[in-house]
Protein backbone atom coordinates (compact mmCIF):
# COMPACT_ATOMS: atom_id res chain seq x y z
CA UNK A 1 0.00 0.00 0.00
CA UNK A 2 1.39 3.42 -0.88
CA UNK A 3 2.03 5.79 2.04
CA UNK A 4 -0.98 8.01 2.66
CA UNK A 5 -0.57 11.68 1.81
CA UNK A 6 0.06 13.79 4.88
CA UNK A 7 -2.36 16.69 5.07
CA UNK A 8 -1.98 19.52 7.55
CA UNK A 9 -5.06 21.36 8.68
CA UNK A 10 -5.97 24.74 10.12
CA UNK A 11 -9.27 25.13 11.91
CA UNK A 12 -11.20 27.36 14.32
CA UNK A 13 -11.61 25.08 17.31
CA UNK A 14 -11.75 21.60 18.73
CA UNK A 15 -14.97 20.49 17.06
CA UNK A 16 -13.67 21.70 13.73
CA UNK A 17 -10.49 19.73 14.35
CA UNK A 18 -12.43 16.51 14.81
CA UNK A 19 -14.33 17.15 11.58
CA UNK A 20 -11.17 18.02 9.68
CA UNK A 21 -9.49 14.83 10.90
CA UNK A 22 -12.47 12.80 9.76
CA UNK A 23 -12.55 14.49 6.37
CA UNK A 24 -8.88 13.87 5.76
CA UNK A 25 -9.16 10.24 6.86
CA UNK A 26 -12.21 9.81 4.61
CA UNK A 27 -10.25 10.68 1.49
CA UNK A 28 -7.41 8.37 2.51
CA UNK A 29 -5.03 11.01 3.81
CA UNK A 30 -3.07 11.03 7.02
CA UNK A 31 -3.40 14.02 9.34
CA UNK A 32 -0.19 15.95 9.93
CA UNK A 33 -0.48 18.76 12.46
CA UNK A 34 -3.61 20.75 13.17
CA UNK A 35 -3.01 24.47 13.48
CA UNK A 36 -5.03 27.46 14.65
CA UNK A 37 -7.75 26.46 17.11
CA UNK A 38 -7.90 30.03 18.35
CA UNK A 39 -11.08 31.18 16.71
CA UNK A 40 -12.02 32.61 13.36
CA UNK A 41 -10.25 35.95 13.71
CA UNK A 42 -6.98 34.20 14.42
CA UNK A 43 -7.44 31.96 11.39
CA UNK A 44 -8.11 34.99 9.22
CA UNK A 45 -4.93 36.61 10.45
CA UNK A 46 -2.80 33.58 9.68
CA UNK A 47 -4.41 32.36 6.48
CA UNK A 48 -1.56 33.80 4.39
CA UNK A 49 0.92 31.73 6.33
CA UNK A 50 -1.03 28.53 5.78
CA UNK A 51 -1.48 29.44 2.14
CA UNK A 52 2.25 29.91 1.76
CA UNK A 53 2.90 26.50 3.29
CA UNK A 54 0.28 25.03 0.94
CA UNK A 55 2.41 25.92 -2.04
CA UNK A 56 4.57 22.95 -1.13
CA UNK A 57 2.34 20.50 0.75
CA UNK A 58 -1.37 19.71 1.02
CA UNK A 59 -3.40 21.73 3.50
CA UNK A 60 -7.03 21.78 4.52
CA UNK A 61 -8.41 25.01 5.94
CA UNK A 62 -11.89 24.77 7.38
CA UNK A 63 -13.79 27.87 8.45
CA UNK A 64 -17.36 28.67 9.49
CA UNK A 65 -19.44 31.00 7.33
CA UNK A 66 -21.33 32.33 10.36
CA UNK A 67 -23.21 35.57 9.59
CA UNK A 68 -21.58 36.35 6.30
CA UNK A 69 -23.79 36.19 3.26
CA UNK A 70 -21.95 33.91 0.86
CA UNK A 71 -19.23 31.28 1.05
CA UNK A 72 -17.76 32.32 -2.28
CA UNK A 73 -17.36 35.93 -1.27
CA UNK A 74 -15.74 34.85 1.99
CA UNK A 75 -13.19 32.84 0.01
CA UNK A 76 -12.61 35.79 -2.27
CA UNK A 77 -12.10 38.28 0.51
CA UNK A 78 -9.94 36.02 2.65
CA UNK A 79 -7.79 34.56 -0.06
CA UNK A 80 -8.19 35.75 -3.64
CA UNK A 81 -5.36 33.53 -4.89
CA UNK A 82 -5.29 30.18 -3.09
CA UNK A 83 -2.14 28.11 -3.39
CA UNK A 84 -1.92 24.95 -5.41
CA UNK A 85 -2.29 22.42 -2.62
CA UNK A 86 -4.69 24.40 -0.47
CA UNK A 87 -8.17 23.06 0.09
CA UNK A 88 -10.08 26.00 1.53
CA UNK A 89 -13.55 24.99 2.67
CA UNK A 90 -16.34 27.00 4.27
CA UNK A 91 -18.95 25.32 6.46
CA UNK A 92 -22.44 26.78 5.94
CA UNK A 93 -23.22 28.14 8.45
CA UNK A 94 -21.11 26.31 10.96
CA UNK A 95 -19.35 22.99 11.22
CA UNK A 96 -21.76 22.14 14.01
CA UNK A 97 -24.59 22.30 11.48
CA UNK A 98 -22.92 19.52 9.50
CA UNK A 99 -22.80 17.34 12.58
CA UNK A 100 -26.43 17.98 13.49
CA UNK A 101 -27.54 17.27 9.95
CA UNK A 102 -25.80 13.90 10.01
CA UNK A 103 -28.82 11.79 10.93
CA UNK A 104 -26.96 8.48 10.76
CA UNK A 105 -24.40 9.54 13.34
Amino acid sequence: MPNPVIVNAAVEGMVDEAVARRLIAHVGGSVGSVYGKNGKADLHKKIKGYNNAARHAPWLVLVDLDDESCAFSLCQSWLPVPARYLCFRVAVRQVEAWLMADAEA
Binding site: G49, A53, H56, A57
Partner: peptide, 17 residues
Protein backbone atom coordinates in the same frame (compact mmCIF):
# COMPACT_ATOMS: atom_id res chain seq x y z
CA UNK B 1 11.35 21.28 8.97
CA UNK B 2 10.22 22.64 5.65
CA UNK B 3 6.65 23.37 6.60
CA UNK B 4 7.77 25.42 9.61
CA UNK B 5 9.95 27.52 7.30
CA UNK B 6 7.07 28.02 4.84
CA UNK B 7 4.68 29.03 7.62
CA UNK B 8 7.18 31.58 8.89
CA UNK B 9 7.66 32.96 5.40
CA UNK B 10 3.91 33.38 5.29
CA UNK B 11 4.08 35.58 8.37
CA UNK B 12 3.32 33.20 11.22
CA UNK B 13 5.26 33.45 14.45
CA UNK B 14 7.60 30.67 15.51
CA UNK B 15 5.22 29.69 18.31
CA UNK B 16 2.28 29.36 15.91
CA UNK B 17 4.30 27.25 13.54
Amino acid sequence: LEDVCHLLEGGLSLADA
